[in-house]
Nucleic acid binder design. Structure first.
Lengths: 386, 386
DNA sequence: CCCGATTAGTGCACCCGGTCAACGAACCGA
DNA sequence: TCGGTTCGTTGACCGGGTGCACTAATCGGG
């Protein structure tokens, strides 16, 4: 447990469980007074002075300039973590690109890099990762951890990529290899789960002990948090909703399923459907979206179907896991605007009749959100499991 | 924490967290030596003597007559819990019947009672529950807890039934009322989750940190355990797979869904389908099952469709939650025998292609299993959350 | 303007649940 | 019989957390 906070600290700090949980509470729930943290974590007030003192002395916590909330009694002295105290690099690998960001402790992006992937050969990829990490590192400030996320089966608890179909990898000890190359603790994770982690600590999931994240983009993904814990099934296989059957007469997906979720709602499928129906093979997804927004009947229908498929996916996930909230995100969430009614109708229709539909929050998506997720996955792993 | 172990103990025991976890470990994982328990719970050997001594003295643990496992070194001294040290009553309420059992600590049924429910009027039900509890109680031996389960939204953390459609109840503080009537701590729970709890501690779930239970009977139900914790969504709404859409052309359910799981696989739906097709309204479910076993084409087809629907339900649950195992149970699981192939085919077909199908275990079901589940729910609540 | 009321934070003695280290116990095989 | 090995116990000790008494800082009211 020592390594987490000793590196680059003038005063090395020996971490106790209470210190860790206080730190995480302050990191996630923003500035809070000692008294408030004590109440939340069921600790005594005296424990809190004892715990926070070394963290403040070592520079991890700051006494935030407290604006008085105008109440009786002695005003509280809010504490916050010094987000700049640590730095992380998050990397998202896709079939043909590498996105990387450097973030601080609060997952604020400080620098970003995107570049094409030279190939899928592991040595090349390792080299590119090492280059990017070097590029993102500020000389005097060592990184605390590196996170790598990809579409495939991988978990932070395990340094090997089990399968990554789009990269053609299986049983690849990527974390070890990168760790060796860059000399920084490195953590792997599934891309959707990493994104869920980011939402859990720094996004819409804050304050919810259970929620689900559903992503739309090149595919449909899903991450689940239950009892404040990010679920990862056997070898990281959770939230595989991409091929959920919507009906049995719909469009075909690349695996030969008729009417599965990704055949309806993934961006390539939407584009293909409209392009094919109109015999305009060069239409882009954005063209399609514009057409739907403009009321074009074909585009409208395809997007309505996509929205309905998404609504059914969300309802199904909610029926099974019972989250307080579902966050909708992904590269093409903005399409929600043109299919909101279809989505809501399907959500209501497929929600089990004994409950009310889940609350759904649409979370706008920036292209570097995936890489940011990887950084948060690394951060969480460092703070919780070390 | 004191109340759990002090009642009726000649020597009152003050429980620590370690004592609780050691006790549960021994309860669930059978006789184990101190050394083994210490390893499993990451405690020191000395902690174990310290923890077990008072529990042995108070009669909660016994030194089991150790059959030597023939190994080098000093033979270990297995410990086991004295299952007779506590007694529980579990009650399952259905629309028109009340099933109740008395169990020991290991959920072994010692006495059972079943009787028709006089009505849904709360005072009558409360009275009947109190009668049954009295009937099941052995004079000298007070009960440790009473568990009540029903189809509807209820959680052990909360003494009120939120909704119980088949009983026509909503927002009913049943636990308080019963507790007052019988003077024993009383816990409510959803029936499927209670059954899942029983599987988790004393059934197929033992040894698995994540698994799902899918039940077939009058309806289709599902309970989920993730990270050793039984999932209960907002107000206990989880595992609502009954109306999962299987296709969009199938039979109608009572809520007007075409082709949902319960329209295919619930026992009333199966019976109705076959009775209607053959125009023999008096056929029973067992008649139908016998016909299918005998190769009758209509019955065969209906049961195959039911099996396929179940397979799809299991695959969907597994895709989303990623359990190590799925346990198949419920009043009519025995129908699995006549539709195993259809089930397996659907399971494979709907399992996400990046993973292998979950392991499925078919668990035979006795009619008092529901009530036993309620007893386990009470036991778990007493041991973990008190 | 002072004085209780109220809430926040600190210092210090203490407690108690665990570990550590040393040892005794009970088996094996040579 | 004796070393090897694992199990279990004992007693000293350690350290994280609590309890309590105290100080700090603000408010509203007489």
């Amino acid at each position: 447990m020592v390594p987490v906070f000793s590196q680059s600290a003038s005063v090395p700090v020996r971490l106790t469980d209470a210190m860790r949980s206080v730190f995480v509470e302050l990191l996630v729930h923003g500035p809070l007074s000692r008294a408030e943290v004590a109440r939340r974590l069921a600790l005594s007030p005296s424990a809190l002075t004892k715990v926070t003192k070394p963290l403040i002395e070592a520079g991890y916590l700051l006494e935030a300039a407290g604006e008085s909330p105008a109440t009786v009694g002695r005003p509280s002295q809010p504490l916050r973590v010094d987000a700049s105290r640590m730095a992380f690099v998050g990397i998202k690998l896709t079939e043909d690109e590498l996105f990387a960001v450097r973030t601080d402790l609060r997952a604020t992006i400080q620098k970003e890099v995107a570049r094409p992937l030279a190939g899928h050969e592991i040595d090349d990829v390792r080299g590119q990762i090492a280059d990017v990490v070097g590029e993102l590192t500020v000389p005097g400030r060592p990184l605390s951890a590196v996170g790598i996320s990809l579409a495939g089966t991988a978990t932070p608890s395990d340094p090997v990529v089990h399968t990554a179909p789009f990269l053609g990898w299986s049983q690849l000890p990527l974390a070890e290899m990168v760790e060796e190359a860059v000399s920084v603790p490195t953590v792997l994770d599934n891309d959707v789960r990493a994104l869920t982690a980011a939402q859990q600590w720094f996004g819409e999931g804050v304050g919810h002990s259970s929620f689900a994240l559903v992503t739309v983009g090149a595919g449909i993904g899903c991450g689940v948090v239950v009892g404040d814990r990010l679920v990862s099934g056997r070898s990281g296989a959770t939230g595989l909703v991409g091929h959920l059957q919507i009906d049995d007469r719909g469009p075909l997906c690349e695996r030969g399923h008729r009417g599965c979720a990704r055949a309806y709602a993934s961006s390539p499928a939407i584009r293909r459907s409209i392009a094919a129906a109109l015999d305009q093979p060069d239409l882009t997804f954005d063209d399609c979206l514009a057409m739907a927004a403009g009321g074009h009947p074909v585009a409208r229908r395809v997007f309505d179907d996509a929205g309905a498929a998404l609504g059914q996916v969300v309802a199904t996930v909610a029926n099974i896991t019972g989250p307080e909230l579902v966050v909708l995100s992904g590269e093409t969430v903005h399409m929600y605007n043109v299919c909101a009614e279809a989505f809501q109708a399907a959500l209501i229709r497929h929600t089990h009749w004994t409950t009310t539909p889940v609350r759904v929050v649409v979370k706008p998506f920036a292209f570097n959100e995936w890489a940011r997720g990887a950084a948060v996955a690394a951060l969480q792993h460092l703070l919780l499991h070390r």
